[in-house]
């Protein structure tokens, strides 16, 4: 029983970061209508920013969070303006190829600048642990979980209470009608894409503390985010958190209870993606 509860706790803690990254992907998919294969590379940028500020300025990753948010937002907005906007009316395949190409380009740029080496930061609280009776709680994963929840709550407030947020939701429901009401879809897209990148950038800082910074660190999170977004319903922002929880729990349970589960854990999101897509197809049929 103790093992089960610790496993569930591990799953819950991991779901925060999953939700944060996947929400960004859901935003770009739901609002802008673009499948962004380069989403994980914004996360990678956040991780490297955190590493560089730590290595050369001694800056605590906690302080890098705000900077990473802003930097990733700017990069995301520029990406939208320079690359995404011109292909918004193009065929979906063209858009996907563009973002796929962008992902490869950014990974290779990082390889060129930083090499393939794995880089780590070392804040003093990195391995601090809270013990609650027989249970252990890593301060960093717990902090990352709380921060992710807080950011997602703020996003929810932004989407439901602010003019821009409401405009964003309107555009996500219908691309043409909001224009008739004076909503500039283009600005909304820019903001949504920038925001999506910013969320990934913040997640990148968290992962630089929990894992590492490397040119390929974002890739696996892009894949998992696709599984979460598919499970939540493409573009459905509200469904992202429960879907992230399902994936993280499933991974934790497989890893703990299946023989050799540690090696299978990265296959769980494929299974989730597969079941979500097939399930949807069956429901439609």
């Amino acid at each position: 029983m103790e093992l089960l509860l610790q496993t569930l706790l591990n799953g819950i803690l991991m779901s925060g970061i999953y939700a944060l990254v996947a929400t960004g992907l859901a935003l770009s998919l739901g609002v802008v209508g673009i499948v962004n294969f380069a989403h994980g590379e914004f996360l990678m940028m956040g991780a490297f920013l955190s590493y560089l500020l730590f290595a050369f300025r001694g800056m605590d990753p906690l302080l890098s969070l705000g900077l990473a948010f802003l930097a990733a937002f700017v990069v995301g907005a520029l990406t939208y303006q320079g690359l995404i906007r011109p292909v918004l009316r193009a065929a979906e395949l063209n858009q996907m190829l563009l973002t796929f190409g962008l992902s490869i380009l950014l990974q290779n740029l990082a390889l060129l600048l930083f090499g393939a080496d794995t880089r780590v930061v070392a804040p003093p609280y990195q391995a601090t642990t809270l013990s609650l009776g027989p249970f252990f709680l890593g301060v960093v994963p717990f902090g990352a979980f709380l921060l992710s929840l807080a950011i997602l709550l703020m996003l929810q407030v932004f989407l439901t209470r602010s003019r821009f947020g409401l405009a964003m939701r309107a555009v996500s429901q219908n691309r043409l009608a909001p224009g008739l009401l004076g909503i500039e879809a283009d600005k909304v897209y820019l903001l949504a894409f920038g925001l999506a990148a910013a969320l990934a950038g913040v997640a990148g800082v968290m992962l630089s503390v929990m894992l590492y910074a490397s040119p390929t660190v974002g890739f696996v999170f892009t894949l998992k985010s696709f599984a979460i977004v598919a499970l939540a319903g493409l573009g459905n922002l509200k469904g992202v958190v429960p879907a992230a929880l399902v994936l993280a729990m499933a991974e934790a349970l497989v890893s703990t209870y299946l023989p050799g589960g540690g090696g299978l854990v990265e296959a769980v999101f494929f299974l989730v993606l597969f079941l979500a897509l097939v399930g949807r197809a069956w429901r439609k049929a």
């Binding site: 794995t118 930061v121 070392a122 252990f136 960093v140």
Partner: peptide
């Protein structure tokens, strides 16, 4: 980090990677 976070206390952690991460030696962990 995660060995500490789950309360695992081995007397020796022994690794056999082809190379070690940059900056790992500066990390107290």
């Amino acid at each position: 980090t995660q060995a500490r976070q789950v309360g695992l206390r081995p007397k020796l952690i022994y690794g056999a990677p082809p190379s070690w991460p940059i900056g790992f030696e500066k990390n107290p962990l």
